[in-house]
Design a protein around this nucleic acid. Structure first.
Length: 575
DNA sequence: GTAGGGTTAG
């Protein structure tokens, strides 16, 4: 088959099956030396498609036995443009190892990849090669180096690289400016901004994001007002700034006032609504946007998963799989989907996702592994979870917490405590969720003293106990018959106002141990805090009944029925 | 070179 014919085919391929076919044709045709132009075409097409397509393109390239610097640099560049930084770097070192000298394109793309994944050692190595290869005066390479050090936060070296650039362009200046902005050195950023011989819209946008990061919205707005022309990034930066300052209304009014909204604008607003629990507004914006990309899907799926709407998350995930041949889910999509499965305890769906990942060649990362750890613990396979946990590249707070929670709900208190200690020893700072995990581990096996002391130790770890933590310990004390102590604990809460859950735990303890006196106190608090909930009334009625106080029990039960009647309207029997 | 998406509880 002619190379040009393959080129035409490649231009048209839209899904993986066609990509596969092309792959086979190349194999059969034994076209080891495709024209560089064709290589470019293949990669250009691949750039529009998914990770899986890239996977095939890589194998195409592999069977072509890349042996010239041009094909290699093209591939590295496209991979890096696709955001596949690790792949780009792997190919860079692969071709380097096989004796191909990188050109300036390959070097600057590889540096960009190092910068994006913060691979310090890789960048330093490439810097060394740059000197050997004599690329020190190529402005592309110099700017890539500058950007690499800026992203690492090493502004001393970054500035040095900048000083060595003879023909600085606006991109070099912007990289330096961006570096100071990112590490929070706003005064330095401002002086770079003032010194710049020319500024473009990126310079102004960087400066704005410097002020929005510092939550100085007045200065940010001043720049926004003064800048000669605005891009969508300028508007988006302002929206992000107001969101971070907790000013959702202002953020929304900027969003509404934008002359043109892009996916970044929508995603920013959707994830902000997600964080404050406003799923309806998020969905409304999601529906408004017709040109959806994978990130927009991901934002909405994550929004559902983060707000306990697991079924909706999975429904949207399935929709993405079925309706959109254009995008394949990526790591972000999958971790939200797995989280949703875990919330539902749906191990079948979870297993399907796992096999899907294998089939697609989607590599695991620590975030994804953490959601799988959570899934397996919720489905009772604690050994599998532990195996995944042991395989993590680095154990962060969330991973430890997921594992501790998992041990807790599976009755492995000892293991949970071991993990907790290990975590503290390695200098990590537990958060409120970690304590929920360790406390429920104690609760599960009835370790009363340990649980109580753990609650008391929270302040020492810099975590203020929340009402949820108190309810676990109240429940733990109550279950073991120490109702009075549980009551005393609630009274000692001070500034942490007990919610209905705390009093409810006490009420359940009273029901278990027939303590009418404390039950009446707990119940009256529950009624006060959650007047619409009938459960507490039934619980107290049961306690009265058990104590032989039939009249009181009856009075409460009648009250429940009356309330029940009031609450029903809205359902079908009205018709 | 600027602006966007993920994992732990309830």
């Amino acid at each position: 088959m002619q190379a040009s014919r393959i080129g035409n085919l490649v231009e048209k391929f839209v899904n993986t099956d066609q990509a596969k076919q092309i792959h086979c044709q190349i194999l059969v045709g034994n076209l080891h030396n495709l024209e560089p132009l064709l290589v470019r075409q293949i990669l250009k097409c691949a750039a529009h498609y998914s990770a899986r397509t890239t996977h095939y393109v890589r194998s195409i390239l592999r069977c072509m036995r890349i042996r010239d610097a041009f094909s290699a640099s093209c591939t590295i560049r496209y991979l890096s443009q696709l955001g596949q930084f690790r792949d780009a770097l792997a190919l860079y070192s692969e071709s380097h190892a096989s004796g191909i000298f990188p050109n300036t394109f390959a070097v600057s793309s590889a540096l960009k990849s190092c910068a994006r994944i913060l691979c310090k050692s890789g960048g330093l190595m490439i810097h060394g090669q740059v000197q050997k290869l004599g690329f020190c005066e190529v402005v592309f390479v110099q700017t890539a180096l500058l950007d690499f050090y800026s992203k690492l936060g090493d502004m001393v070296v970054a500035h040095k690289v900048f000083d060595e650039i003879r023909e600085r362009n606006v991109v070099s200046w912007n990289s330096l400016l961006g570096g100071y902005v990112k590490c929070g050195k706003l005064a330095m950023a401002q002086s770079v901004f003032d010194e710049m011989p020319e500024r473009d819209v990126v310079s102004w946008n960087s400066m704005i994001s410097g002020y929005t990061r510092a939550k100085d919205m007045e200065q940010a707005y001043e720049l926004f007002r003064r800048m000669p022309q605005r891009s969508s990034a300028s508007w988006n930066a302002m929206v992000t700034g107001y969101i971070e300052c907790g000013k959702m209304e202002l953020a929304r009014s900027f969003f509404d006032a934008m002359p043109e909204r892009n996916n970044v604008s929508y995603i920013t607003m959707i994830s902000a609504y997600s964080k404050c629990g406003n799923v309806e507004c998020a969905r409304e914006l999601y529906d408004q946007r017709s040109e959806k990309d994978l990130l927009l899907y991901n934002a909405m799926i994550a929004c559902y998963a983060q707000n306990s709407r697991a079924k909706d998350a999975l429904q949207l995930f399935d929709q993405l799989l079925k309706q959109n041949t254009k995008f394949q889910p990526d790591k972000m999509t999958l971790s939200s989907a797995i989280s949703a499965c875990s919330q539902l305890g749906d191990s079948e769906h979870g297993a399907w996702i796992e096999s899907y990942m294998k089939e697609m060649g989607i590599a695991m990362d620590d975030h994804l592994t953490t959601s799988l750890i959570d899934l397996h613990t919720k489905c009772g396979d604690i050994d599998k979870a532990r195996e995944l946990f042991n395989g993590l590249q680095s154990r962060d707070l969330v991973a430890y917490t997921a594992m501790i929670l998992g041990c807790g709900i599976n009755g492995r208190a000892k293991e949970a405590i071991g993990l907790f200690d290990e975590m503290i020893d390695s200098g990590m700072v537990p958060n409120v969720v970690t304590f929920t995990g360790i406390l429920s581990a104690y609760s599960h096996v009835g370790m009363v003293e340990e649980g109580y002391h753990c609650l008391m130790s929270m302040q020492r770890h810099g975590v203020g106990p929340t009402p949820d933590h108190y309810s676990i310990v109240v429940d733990l004390l109550g279950k073991s018959g120490r109702v009075e102590e549980a009551y005393e604990l609630i009274k000692s809460m001070g500034s942490v106002a007990p919610h209905a859950g705390v009093w409810g735990a006490l009420l359940r303890a009273c029901s278990l141990h027939g303590n009418v006196e404390v039950a009446e106190i707990a119940a009256s608090k529950c009624f006060e805090l959650e007047p619409d909930s009938s459960g507490y009334r039934s619980l107290l009625a049961g306690i009265y009944a058990a104590a032989g106080r039939w009249e009181d029990a009856d009075r409460l039960r009648r009250g429940v029925e009356e309330k029940g009647l009031v609450k029903i309207p809205g359902s079908s029997w009205i018709q």
